Computed example of a mutant assay.
Amino acid sequence: MGLKDAKEGKLLYHLTELKNLESIIDFGLVPRKILRENTVTFGDVADPEIIRKREVLGLDEYIPFHFHPYSAFDVAVKKTHVGEEMIYICITRSLARRNNFRILPKHPLALEECQLYDYDEGFEMIDWDILTRVGQNDEDARQIKMAECLSPLVIPVDAFQCIYVSSKETENKVADMLKQKGVIFPPPFITVMPQWFE
């Protein structure tokens, strides 16, 4: 999917380290607050300053997804975690809509107040012209391109639509892990997309 197709896309994207996948298969994608309250150890890819602000705003009660895999957050994480195997866990937007996940039309650090919107209202509030514009990377555009869809629910592996990986080798690791855990195909489908991890 290209950035220009983000509005019409069918998926939401959550970037994480491959080493987190075994726990995710066992327990689902879980909001950070629940993980911390239960002293679960996990590889955290987010910047500590951003995590602190998210906690203050109550956003650690949600699992964040982006509307495309090209956000400044994703780029920064991949640079910071060079050498770590990363994956994208994707769910369908229809799942998010049915369960009324919340939407932030801009990255939370860009907001004075953190106003969460119901899925449909929030989707319409996103500035899709800027979000889908290739090459516009001023600060405001970067914040808009990091609009988030937020799940208050634990998302089990059988709700995943697909997992994007960087290589055939990682694809095999993910497939083996799912098989060992008894996850039946399909979904989640596993797709190799090396350009998303460069």
Results as ranks from 00 to 15, higher is better:
Asp5Gln: 13
Lys7Asp: 03
Glu8Cys: 02
Leu12Ala: 03
His14Arg: 08
Leu15Ile: 07
Leu15Pro: 03
Thr16Glu: 09
Leu18Cys: 07
Lys19Arg: 14
Leu21Thr: 01
Asp26Trp: 13
Phe27Ser: 15
Val30Asn: 10
Leu35Met: 15
Leu35Asn: 13
Glu37Phe: 11
Val40Asp: 07
Thr41Gln: 15
Phe42Ser: 08
Gly43Gln: 15
Asp44Val: 06
Val45Gln: 09
Asp47Gln: 08
Pro48Gly: 02
Ile50Pro: 00
Ile51Cys: 05
Ile51Ser: 06
Lys53Asn: 11
Glu55Ser: 15
Glu55Met: 14
Val56Thr: 06
Gly58Pro: 05
Asp60Leu: 14
Asp60His: 09
Tyr62Gln: 07
Tyr62Cys: 03
His66Thr: 09
Phe73Lys: 11
Ala76Gln: 14
Ala76Glu: 14
Val77Pro: 03
Lys78Gln: 12
Lys79Tyr: 05
Thr80Met: 08
Val82Asn: 01
Val82Lys: 09
Glu84Gln: 06
Met86Gly: 07
Ile87His: 06
Ile87Leu: 10
Ile89His: 12
Ile91Ser: 04
Ile91Met: 05
Thr92Arg: 13
Arg93Trp: 00
Leu95Phe: 15
Leu95Lys: 10
Ala96Asp: 05
Asn99Phe: 03
Arg102Met: 05
His107Ile: 00
Leu109Phe: 06
Leu111Trp: 04
Glu112Phe: 04
Cys114Arg: 07
Gln115Cys: 00
Leu116Asp: 07
Tyr117Ser: 10
Tyr119Ile: 01
Phe123Gly: 04
Glu124Asn: 11
Glu124Gln: 13
Glu124Arg: 15
Ile126Gly: 00
Trp128Cys: 05
Asp129Trp: 10
Leu131Ile: 06
Thr132Gly: 04
Arg133Ser: 13
Val134Gly: 00
Asp138Val: 01
Ala141Arg: 02
Ala141Phe: 00
Lys145Val: 00
Lys145His: 02
Leu150Tyr: 06
Leu150Asn: 04
Ser151Ile: 01
Ser151Glu: 04
Leu153Asp: 12
Val154Ala: 14
Val154Thr: 12
Ile155Ser: 04
Phe160Asp: 01
Phe160Gln: 00
Phe160Asn: 01
Gln161Ala: 12
Gln161Lys: 15
Val165Ala: 05
Val165Gly: 04
Ser167Arg: 09
Glu169Ile: 09
Ile184Lys: 14
Ile184Leu: 15
Pro186Lys: 08
Phe189His: 12
Thr191Cys: 03
Thr191Ala: 09
Gln195Asn: 14
Phe197Lys: 09
Glu198Gly: 12
